[in-house]
């Protein structure tokens, strides 16, 4: 636990990337997120844990306004990235999502070549001036996702033809290719085997150098391994939020302790 404490200390020294205040989310009449306040630090991995249906994904999707695509969903409260309210009328959700990338639970490569999958974001946002630059971005992203060596000889073959773990890393490469400032990951390892999971976890640790990462996970071990801060959700409430070491060794709330020791879930 000693080295984890060290990591926490570096984390708490960083400034806040995202601040959420009084966030409420409704699906029709279903009140899914109840008055949540969270600060997400820059260049830190923050884990969201909690029993199924407690609203982790819902809250995560608030951070890049993916909930806009669900007609019945309503978000209240204030969420700021670098001090700028992302639900402000002047903010274009499309631009926002280029800054806040997302990786989903199930790998969802597009029915395109591996290259085109990674180049998708840079192309639609016009991030490169020529083909050589694009090649460079694609290679860098694939290297970051620890996939380059496996696919460098078949960049033109379809992304859907990769294995599940490779597909998920391809999706991570696709997300980092737009150089987002924040990367949201919703249970990114739930479809992966232990080896691929370890690779992705290693990758998350590396990504921390450049991005702030928010990861939803059902695995306590994973949260403890990769995150510096942990937020515990329960029935739509944020029960406890603090340094990962503290949450797992010395939880303040009895519900957190019950969940971590496996008594509620």
């Amino acid at each position: 636990m000693e080295d984890m404490r060290l990591a926490d200390r570096t984390a708490s020294a960083r400034e806040n990337k995202i601040t959420a205040r009084g966030v409420q989310v409704y699906y029709g009449t279903n009140h899914a997120i109840k008055d949540v306040d969270v600060d997400i630090a820059d260049r830190t991995v923050t884990a969201f844990i909690g029993p199924s249906g407690c609203g982790k994904s819902t809250f995560l999707r608030c951070l890049n306004r993916m909930n806009d695509t669900i007609p019945i969903c309503r978000v209240e409260g204030r969420i700021e990235i670098d001090g700028e309210d992302i639900y402000d009328k002047r903010v274009d959700p499309v631009q926002l999502r280029a800054r806040v990338g997302m990786v989903f639970q199930k790998p969802n490569p597009f029915p395109k070549s591996i290259y085109d999958n990674v180049a998708y974001g840079p192309r639609i946002h016009g991030l490169t001036r020529n083909r050589a630059e694009l090649d460079e971005v694609v290679e860098k992203s694939l290297r970051r996702a620890a996939l380059w060596n496996e696919v460098k000889d078949r960049l033109t073959s379809p992304g859907t033809g990769l294995s599940g773990g490779q597909q998920q890393r391809l999706c991570i490469a696709r997300a980092v290719a737009t150089s987002p400032e924040v990367l949201l990951m919703d249970e990114p390892c739930s479809a992966l085997d232990p080896i691929a999971t370890a690779q992705v976890e290693e990758l998350i640790d590396e990504l921390r150098e450049n991005f702030s990462v928010v990861i939803v996970t059902h695995s306590m071990q994973q949260a403890a391994r990769v995150s510096q801060r942990t937020a515990f959700f329960h029935l739509g409430n944020l029960v406890e939020f603090g340094e990962t070491g503290q949450i797992f060794t010395n939880p303040r709330d009895p519900r957190t302790e019950a969940y971590i020791t496996g008594r509620i879930g």
Partner: peptide, 13 residues
């Protein structure tokens, strides 16, 4: 699949 749409929107398309 809806996941493809989500994937594309999440990149900012």
């Amino acid at each position: 699949p809806q996941s493809l749409r989500d994937g594309s929107f999440a990149i900012g398309a």
